[in-house]
Design a binder for these strands. Structure first.
Lengths: 352, 352
DNA sequence: GCGCCATTTGTTAACGCTAACATGTGAGCG
DNA sequence: CGCTCACATGTTAGCGTTAACAAATGGCGC
């Protein structure tokens, strides 16, 4: 054995002065193998399937790895095994926690299995999304999570050819491209409208937050209107805001609500709802006495006074669920339940 | 021409029934080469260095690529070229926009050059950080951005061996591990203290937000205290909060501030400062008449009433700068300026 | 008309790892 | 005591791309 080892060592030293040498100079699996007096394959097995390696070899390999400071080249491993152990997620922006949190959830779901997360932000641009899909497929990600229910034809083609699991986030298309995790924004709107109806408010309003290619707010408005009609209420006032809310916009909105004698308003975005509440109060409007306000949950919902009745969408959990679905599919399992409705919480507080 | 193509096609059909066949069945560069009647290397050149390929060949290759639906395998490319065109960023959490925004900035800085971003979140755990560093180095990322100035010995060793550019974010160590982009939290604290002194407030307080292994808040407190002393003010009251602020905590804080007859307080976290302001007002304390409040910038700074005097730290720009530094180094440039202070804005508003 | 060089294209051999197959070893069993 | 089988380990040949070198072509100056 020792002799064999010697010979190997010598051979390695004869470093043929071949005209080519592209090596990176980094420690390779071969170096560990030599140091542990086993074959490269056994080292590879030790790292991927430790149960298939005997105790004596395992010990020597572990020692050798730390002795020579080996960090496996996962790029080479990915190429050889045709599995990258990387998943990608595409979100419109990371500045909004509601979109950043699923990324964290996804990472947490996958970390234990050795997967890493590639992120791409689109700023709501369809072209950027297509470019990202191509880039990620080019990197041979094992799975991909895409925010939103709309997928361009080009993206569909590329994803189809790649044959990797895909999870659409936030929306629940009747027939998902592959899988989908989200909640029904129509249900959210309906839930709030029902609450207003039960409280006896009749003159309602809904303020939507229009963001390019994001239909979530629009769906909430739709659900709200449908439910209001079902309860025989007069058609609610519908307003839309298309940019980050400034204090002066809110004043205008408050004035409009007062003019229209609105009794209860549902604001479909977290920040907007707090801003509206603060503005209404400083305009001297009693909440909920004169105007009831419901919105979306944020850190401040329980901090403002009166506390805000709000819908909480489980953003982090969405990412977690998406990760679990991907894991199952990447492990070769079939997934029967292709649409997961994570639901939402409706926290009734003082503002309604 | 057509004949040549035919023959090649036939050859591809003879699929030798070799005992081994690990192919992925996906379109390879070879397939494009055959369809365009050039060598694989020319296709590779067309993709990486288009200027080195003649116009006729370029045209045929472009057509062939879209005809056969080729998506280059970047994993194989990375292995061969020893460049992954991936950079990694490690942040404590993505739920806090202040940490999520640099990720977006980094992505935006690198997108145009074909780089992608791998993210890892540590939840402030040093062990997780080490594991992520190892994993990212294993994936042979071309550069890495790490939040915070402290790097464990293990991480340093691995990063040293990997010989890749590293950017530390938010803090500016005297001697960075490699490069650093951040701002001086001591300066931030000092700036606010100076402002208070100039306004004539004497009895000061500072409320820190302690988060495991995050020294930024502590540095702000340090700078604040030093500057207060320089102006001959009595030693400010120092308080610390170690969890997400709840409304009742804020009430306690407000009571304590009143009891101690504090005239001006600096809150070193964005959310806390808004919460404190709202609480002080509902407790009937005049702001800034009885108590002046300065905090950190958030969406709500200009929304609350009175508007909040706040320090804005340029989170997105930090990521952008980090990306630019990495790009230069990855292009082989030497970077002389290894510490970049992105500074901060101090927005004086009604609350002080 | 000849050599020189820039431009374009082709050929070969890695890059560092793992799948697939091959082989060796010893325990268990009738 | 030979046979089978589970287990441990080794050998071989890629995975799909690009670096390095080689070669063919043609324009240009003299």
């Amino acid at each position: 054995m020792v002799d064999g080892f010697r010979v190997d060592t010598d051979m390695s030293e004869q470093r043929a002065p071949a005209r080519r040498s592209r090596g990176t100079g980094r420690v390779r699996i071969e170096d560990v193998a030599r140091a542990a007096e086993v074959s490269a394959q056994t080292v590879s097995r030790f790292l991927r399937h430790p149960d298939q390696v005997g105790p004596a070899a395992s010990e020597r390999i572990a020692a050798a790895i730390s002795r020579v400071g080996y960090v496996p080249n996962l790029i080479a491993g990915s190429l050889a095994s045709n599995r990258s152990r990387v998943v990608a997620i595409i979100v419109p922006t990371l500045a909004n926690p509601v979109h950043a949190q699923p990324v964290e959830g996804l990472g947490d779901a996958l970390r234990a299995d050795g997967y890493q997360v590639l992120v791409g932000t689109t700023d709501f641009s369809q072209e950027v999304e297509e470019a990202l899909v191509r880039a990620f497929v080019g990197r041979r990600v094992d799975g991909i999570v895409i925010t939103g229910g709309r997928l361009s034809a080009a993206s569909r083609t590329v994803l189809k050819a790649a044959a990797i699991p895909v999870v659409q986030l936030w929306e629940l298309p009747r027939i998902p491209f592959d899988m989908a995790v989200g909640n029904s924004n129509i249900d959210i709107g309906a839930c709030v409208a029902r609450h207003f109806a039960e409280r006896g408010y009749r003159r309602l309003a809904v303020i939507g937050h229009v963001q390019k290619s994001d239909t979530r707010s629009a769906d909430r408005v739709t659900g709200f209107l449908a439910e209001a009609q079902r309860h025989g209420l007069p058609a609610p006032l519908v307003m839309e805001v298309d940019r980050p809310m400034l204090i002066r916009d809110a004043s205008d909105l408050v004035a409009a609500l007062r003019r229209e004698e609105v009794r209860a308003v549902f604001v479909t975005s977290a920040q907007l709802s707090v801003v509206l509440l603060l503005n209404a109060r400083s305009a001297g409007i009693a909440v909920p006495g004169e105007l009831a306000i419901a919105g979306l949950e944020s850190d401040l919902s329980t901090v403002v006074s009166p506390t805000l009745t709000a819908v909480r969408v489980p953003a982090y959990e969405l990412g977690l669920q998406a990760g679990r679905l991907l894991l199952r599919r990447m492990a070769g399992e079939k997934v029967a339940q292709k649409r997961i409705d994570t639901g939402f919480e409706f926290n009734v507080r003082e503002s309604t």
